[in-house]
Design a protein around this nucleic acid. Structure first.
Lengths: 149, 149
DNA sequence: GGTTGACCCTGTAAATAGTACAGGGTTTAT
DNA sequence: ATAAACCCTGTACTATTTACAGGGTCAACC
């Protein structure tokens, strides 16, 4: 019987053992086949999927969004259109996240630089990391409301 | 009485009204002063802080991590050393997140490209987004266990 | 002054994501 | 055969966020 046990997958992917059961319950992964004793046996593809989930979660995607991401594939049955729309939206989100993180990194670098030169600052410089969400500026039309499928 | 009400801050920062109470309970923000009737009145700095929290959450930081980030400042009282260590660690985390997101963006671009050309395929290209977490490769010594402060 | 609607307060409960644990079975090794 | 290290299930807990019920306050309008 080829396959990986729960703890093996968990170790390789850096997730908690229990999360695997949770992802199964949430239907992010298919229920893996079992050994005669009832032990789950994960395939290599399962492990890849789980690694992906772990990373995407770490980047702030919800499980629902991750499910969407994983369903993004070019399917013979459907036209590409819905996939394209979703992929482009995700791309925009990812792009914004990168910009925000770069901004944060820049701020951290400045802080580190000051620290190395022992320049004292009592205010918290990192708070000004995000130009995009600075309050006091009215957002025009940029409604960040709940995103639907 | 100068200040912003709960709903004003929530609107400006793009957070749910109720989150403000939660952040107060979790001590990420100081309890704001109240009007005679007991209404919370947030300062501009509160709003900046809340906007920061919102963004950092969106990037996958936990509230505890965000609290750490907000406490990063060069203080007369303490030596810079601990700040330096923390800032550098955060920088590393941020850097890794950027790398992961870039990898994801690349995959999305490939998917979009395929989709635009209507190249039909049934496997899910997005799963290969994260080279950094590819299972099947033994991590040597790189224990990604729980990160401590 | 009274009423209405939009706001605020509190406490509590739900939903999502993840973890922990109890009570028990299985595998492996000695 | 017995101990250690796994696995199973169900359940219950944390963290973060959101929703709701029951009630008070404010501004406007008649």
């Amino acid at each position: 019987m080829e396959g990986l046990t729960r703890s093996e997958v968990a170790k390789q992917c850096g997730v908690n053992i229990e999360s695997l059961r949770y992802y199964e319950k949430r239907r992010l992964i298919d229920p893996p086949p079992r050994t005669p004793a009832g032990y789950r046996m994960y395939s290599r593809e399962d492990a890849v999927k789980i690694g992906f989930i772990k990373n995407a979660r770490n980047l702030g995607f919800t499980l629902n969004e991750i499910n969407d991401l994983m369903k993004l594939r070019v399917d013979r049955k459907k036209s590409c259109d819905s996939v394209l729309v979703k992929a482009r939206n995700k791309r925009k989100e990812v792009d914004q996240k990168i910009r925000d993180l770069k901004s944060m990194r820049k701020t951290l670098d400045q802080l580190i630089g000051k620290c190395e030169k022992s320049v004292l600052t009592n205010d918290c410089p990192i708070l000004s990391s995000f130009e995009s969400a600075k309050p006091g500026k009215k957002l025009q039309g940029g409604d960040h409301g709940p995103q639907k499928d």
